[in-house]
Simulated scan of single mutants.
Amino acid sequence: MWRLAVVLAVWAGHAAAGCRDMAFEGASYTICEVTAEQDVRLFHSGPEGALGSFAAVDQVIEPQGLRLDFAMNAGMYHRDLAPVGLYVEDGARATPLVTRAGPGNFGLVPNGVFCVGDRLRVIETLAFEASRPDCRYATQSGPMLVIGGKLHPKFLADSDSLNIRNGVGVTADGSRAVFAISNQAVNFYAFARLFRDGLDLPEALYFDGSISRLYDHDSGRHDAGFPMGPMVGVVVPR
């Protein structure tokens, strides 16, 4: 199983993602915050197929008078860059929800869905299947990092599985989402504690590791690497 980097773009005519560095329990992270008032979108493909890079996203939105302000990969993808689990773009479902356990991080249940509707939500997969919330955009990934204020039950504090990792957490009222990427290798337990204890977020979802990358226009950060599937970010007027 390959990984999906889901590009999530947010347009707010007067606002951009607030990205900053944060130290927590001896590790360094970069976090980027968005609000439900912003116009959140998902991007997977352009006219010639999967976008693959932050630069390609910028080119696609340029004719709309927009530029990329912030972006990161967000989820799992197959070899052909197609989403592994649920993917919804502008109300249209491209791939179905996967409810079974399986190999790899995606199948380490409970996993979950990042849903953009009238608010920003992270929802455990089986709860999502039962409630079927109205999502204009959605991406499934896994594992869940924080579920109802509790860490994923399979995470170990002393795990030696270390990697650069990224994910998203949301506030209880869905008014705000925080995207985070570690600036050094950390295990799942440490990364989940960042969201729960460092950022005080009751629900959080893992997006990926090893290929985790960030683009931040204001700081000039532009992590490079192999082509990604769809990606996550914020767009603002040029």
Rank of each mutant, 00 (worst) to 15 (best):
N183Q: 15
A127F: 01
L86T: 04
G220Q: 06
F195S: 00
N105Y: 03
P63D: 07
V170Y: 00
Q140Y: 04
S219G: 07
D39G: 14
N73R: 06
A192N: 02
S161I: 05
A177P: 10
L108I: 03
A5H: 07
N111H: 15
E62V: 06
A55I: 06
A204S: 12
V7T: 12
Q59Y: 04
V40L: 15
R20Y: 02
E89C: 13
S175F: 01
M231W: 04
H152S: 13
M22F: 11
L68Q: 09
G167M: 02
L4R: 11
L201R: 03
R196T: 06
D208C: 07
A101F: 02
H222E: 15
H152T: 11
V57T: 04
V10E: 10
P237C: 04
R121F: 01
V57Y: 05
V178D: 09
R100F: 04
A185S: 15
G225R: 03
P110R: 00
G225C: 07
F179A: 01
F195H: 02
T30N: 05
L214C: 05
F24D: 14
P133I: 11
M231F: 09
Y206F: 12
D197L: 08
H78W: 14
R176P: 01
F226I: 12
I211K: 05
M1A: 15
L120K: 03
G18K: 12
V88R: 02
N166A: 10
P133N: 11
Y215W: 04
R165Y: 04
L8V: 08
G142R: 07
L51T: 06
V34L: 11
